[in-house]
Nucleic acid binder design. Structure first.
Lengths: 194, 194
DNA sequence: GACAAGAACGACCGGTCGTGCTATTTTTTT
DNA sequence: AAAAAAATAGCACGACCGGTCGTTCTTGTC
């Protein structure tokens, strides 16, 4: 790998953290340059525009998410275990990044009223993730772990709600019971699926 | 009421809409001046600083929220009906503001890592609201509508999750079924409380 | 060792931000 | 109607924004 390529990856990894903390708009070239100990222009030479940078940050975050949340869960056996793994890895993903948390959550609220390529890219990522959740639930029905007739997309909605509530209680309210509450809610949800 | 007072309230009302759309940081004095047809300096004379403006915007939003969500629900009879009213008014509050949605949701994500008076004020508002939800649930236990031993604060957590999922599906994904999903989830939640 | 390509630099552009100071207009009080 | 007070406008500031420029340092190839 060329040196430029390596630097660009270093920039993007650092940028994902900054986005998780301050959002996609809060990410400024100056801050990112300081964080990577590059000059602003030296950094900017790696990207066509700020939007290009933001798109690449989104793509980098997506790759991280798939690597640490989705892929390990897909190695679990089909059915309830896999659904559990998806949710638990998701919570861990949010907690692991000590400084920022999940970068998609702030991005979702910044972009929900701003049409454009950035928003389209984010929506695509989120739809994929919801599809993954729903598909895992549907497989659990096939396996006989969940009752037939279960609305898998409704389950995905409910689970997403638990994650967002966790994010909110954890990051804004600093509630130490946030994770416990999310897990309790998830168990109650699963019990209703059987 | 003096004219200045009236203008200030007009500014704050308009500012709440802009915050709902663009967040507390996205609110700029220039934009707000244009929206209220004042000069930037003429507008600024009403406030000590931008932070002062933001604090007053938060307080204005809080007053609106209590007026349109909490107070009408407290006029409902104690018990399940009141819990229902709180949730339904909450959903309606989010949908009523055609341009912006709930101003507290974007603010929560902007401020979750920024200590200061703004964050403290927002946390206080949110804690009050969660207490209101939990208290209504506890009353429903007293009235015999909900089973005894119910964890009222867990219910508040779950309900908050449903609202956030609704907000996310509605505003980012533009899912027309968002409200239906939230209501379905709420009904399932209530059924488990009885 | 020459030389081109890649990578990073510092200076700078026009624009917008929050914020102060001063003048002018409008409202209120006498 | 005059004087006092309040409300608004005009203007300029320093800081920072995304982005461009020409230059320099590094790297690898012939």
């Amino acid at each position: 790998m060329s040196k430029g390529q390596a630097t660009r990856e270093r920039i993007l990894d650092r940028a994902v953290d900054l986005v998780a903390a301050a959002g996609l708009e809060g990410l400024s070239l100056g801050d990112l340059a300081k964080a990577t100990r590059l000059s602003k222009s030296g950094l900017f030479a790696h990207f066509d525009s700020k939007q290009d940078l933001q798109l690449q940050v989104l793509e980098t975050a997506r790759a991280h998410f798939i690597e640490t949340v989705v892929s390990p869960a897909l190695r679990q056996p089909r059915g309830e275990l896999r659904v559990r793994a998806l949710f638990e890895n998701w919570l861990a993903w949010e907690q692991a990044r000590e400084k920022g948390g999940c970068p998609f959550v702030p991005a979702s609220h910044e972009l929900d009223d701003r049409p454009g390529r950035l928003r389209d890219a984010l929506v695509a990522v989120q739809r994929d993730w919801i599809d993954t959740l729903a598909m895992a639930a549907r497989i659990a029905v096939e396996e006989g772990h969940f009752r037939s007739g279960l609305d898998a997309r409704q389950l995905a909605f409910d689970v997403y709600g638990l994650f967002l509530a966790f994010h909110f209680y954890h990051r804004l309210l600093r509630d130490p019971e946030a994770a416990g509450r999310a897990i309790d809610g998830f168990e109650r949800l699963l019990a209703a699926c059987r």
